[in-house]
Write a protein that binds this DNA or RNA. Sequence first.
RNA 1: CGGGGCGUGGCGCAGUCUGGCAGCGCGCCUGCUUUGGGAGCAGGAAGCCGCAGGUUCAAAUCCUGCCGCCCCGACCA
Length: 506
Amino acid sequence: MAKEAATAIEPTREENYPEWYQEVIKASDMAENSPVRGCMVIKPWGYALWENISRVLDDMFKQTGVKNAYFPLFIPLSFLEKEAAHVEGFAKECAVVTHHRLEKGGNGGLVPAGPLTEPLIVRPTSETIIGDAFSKWITSYRDLPVLINQWANVVRWEMRTRLFLRTSEFLWQEGHTAHATAAEAIERTRMMLEVYRKVSEDYLAIPVITGEKSASEKFPGAETTTCIEAMMQDRKALQAGTSHFLGQNFAHASQIKYQSEKEIEEYAWTTSWGVSTRLIGALIMTHSDDNGVILPPRVASAHVVLMPIIRKEQNRDAIMDYTQGIADRLRKLAYYGRNIQVEIDSRDIGGARNWEWIKKGIPLRVEIGPKDMASDSVFVGRRDKDPRDKAAFRKDAFVDGVKDLLDEIQNNLYQKALDFKNTHTRPMDEKTDFDAFFTPKNTERPEIHGGFALSHWCGNAGCEKNIKDRLNVTIRCIPFGGGNEAGRCIECNGPSAKRVVFAKAY
RNA sequence: CGGGGCGUGGCGCAGUCUGGCAGCGCGCCUGCUUUGGGAGCAGGAAGCCGCAGGUUCAAAUCCUGCCGCCCCGACCA
């Protein structure tokens, strides 16, 4: 027997969180770096997650009247220039296409030829190109609202990239809507944020805080940006989704106008909202442990792995039949929008097989050997429990109860994440406490520290900046609900009407 | 773009200081024995030592330039 590591993943979260994150992804076989700088290859086990998340979102979008469409990957440079704040926000991270042909170069290579008269940028987001379409589609108040979503890839040339969390190219959906009134657009902004909250909490089992961004953190060109913020296991905040009220900024830029009932020319009010493959990063960092990924059942790449244990060759057919019979029954069961997905892994590689599936985070591992078959049973391990904590089930009881079992795991994951978030979220009124909260004890090798501080803020951008410069802590959002409560700004002691969420962020 | 680290079979690394046969562990393939907590033995395949120049009888090793990756920061979903 080979040596056993204390944990399947090294280093552990405690030892080196960023490296742990990378190792977890590698061990789960979800994605890998590609030859293209900053771009990832999403492998089947990771892509299945995205498919499942997409399906849930897509259904919910459609239930609110949104329809899917598709717009070009390339955006004329002049389009991006139309909205001043938007240009400022995205100019630094645009990939630009300047040529349309390759020719043989001097030493056998290829060189770009045929310069474009107007460079094209690869979309970092599609407000401008979709705004242009909307300007043609909308002429009357009768055309409104227009409710469009597209599933697409976008490119943002980031300095530093990390699998799923920040890659040069990523997959996302971007919703774009146009409305006759500000009130209706604001309502839509909140409605879609609510969809994100629901998917995040009910499917990904990631508890979030919903709220509004401060002026410095909002989307370039937006009037207001609302967001869902989640806490990762290193207690840093991750912005998991945003929904923007764009006012009439993009309507002016793209000339989205309509004639009202009163025969007056009006500009439309628009929104945009998106979530991306970053959600997968959020999911990994919320649930995974030192043995690898833990997938919430409702979006898991697969639900159950069946592992036949064939001790004697003459048992093979009987055990495989028994296993196949269980798989057939499980696959007929519907669970949250799809049938139970079953993997059968009959590889003869000893205990390594079990550990591979632990690292991949599959919710249920089922061992099926001669003893189980003899007693009409199965031996089940749950990913939300210790790897050695396994229990025998009667076969029928397991099959009939598998959906309850999956829901139990789903709820456990959510509850655990919620407890973690609550434990590390605290009101903070004294500047010294605030600074201590966000300062690691060991400056050489900072330990996991901090969390969400609920503190008062006077609304002044200067105070926000001071805090960022001093502690690298930002306002993640001004949370909805919770009520107003007068207090004193954590930075300047000025009057404040409400607490906001401060945290270090990804 | 600033600071730090690193590029050697698929993965992780040693070898570089002091130039002289391309190595180790894991993984992979074959066979036998095993199997309910990460199997054992035997055999085997797999390398442009990041790239390009230079020095040398000889370069993974020395020199010059470039490229890429990772971590921290700035930027960001």
